[in-house]
Amino acid sequence: MKTRGTSLNPHNRYQPRVIARSRDGEWYQSEEDEPNPDSIATEVIDERVRSIISRNRSPDVPFDQSINPYRGCEHACIYCFARPTHAYWDMSPGLDFETRLIAKPNADHQLRRELDRPGYTPSPIALGVNTDAYQPIERERRITRSLLEVMLEYRHPVSIITKGALILRDLDLLSELARQGLCSVRISLTTLSNDLKRRMEPRTAAPATRLKVIRQLASAGVPTGIILGPVIPFINDHEIEEILTSAASAGATRASWIMLRLPLELDELFQDWLQRHFPDRAERVLGRIRDLRGGKHNNSQFGRRMTGTGPYAQLIRQRFNNRARKLGFSLHASEPLRTDLFRRPGGEQMGLW
Rank of each mutant, 00 (worst) to 15 (best):
T131C: 12
I187V: 15
G128W: 10
T99P: 00
N298Q: 02
I52G: 01
F234A: 11
L115V: 14
D33R: 00
E283D: 13
E265F: 10
N321H: 07
I161H: 01
P10S: 03
S330P: 06
Y120R: 03
Y88E: 13
D170L: 13
S54C: 02
T224P: 02
S300Y: 00
A218H: 00
L269A: 12
G347E: 06
E242K: 09
T3Y: 04
L337M: 07
R325E: 02
R57Q: 02
E176W: 01
E201A: 13
R48M: 07
P105V: 13
R319D: 05
S146V: 11
V231I: 15
G310H: 03
Y120T: 08
P16I: 15
L337S: 05
I227Q: 02
S66F: 12
N12T: 11
R338Q: 03
R50S: 07
E176C: 13
R254P: 05
G303K: 12
L8N: 01
R17N: 04
T3N: 07
T253W: 05
S249Y: 11
S193F: 03
S300F: 04
E201M: 11
L192R: 00
L127S: 07
R203G: 03
P84S: 14
Q180S: 05
K212I: 14
Q15G: 05
N106F: 08
G310L: 12
P223R: 02
Y88K: 09
R186S: 11
R100K: 14
D132E: 06
I19C: 01
Q29K: 11
P136C: 10
R112I: 15
E34C: 11
P336S: 05
G308I: 15
T224M: 10
L244E: 01
L182H: 04
C80L: 15
K197A: 15
L101V: 14
D237A: 10
A218D: 02
A282H: 00
F320H: 07
R319H: 07
R142F: 13
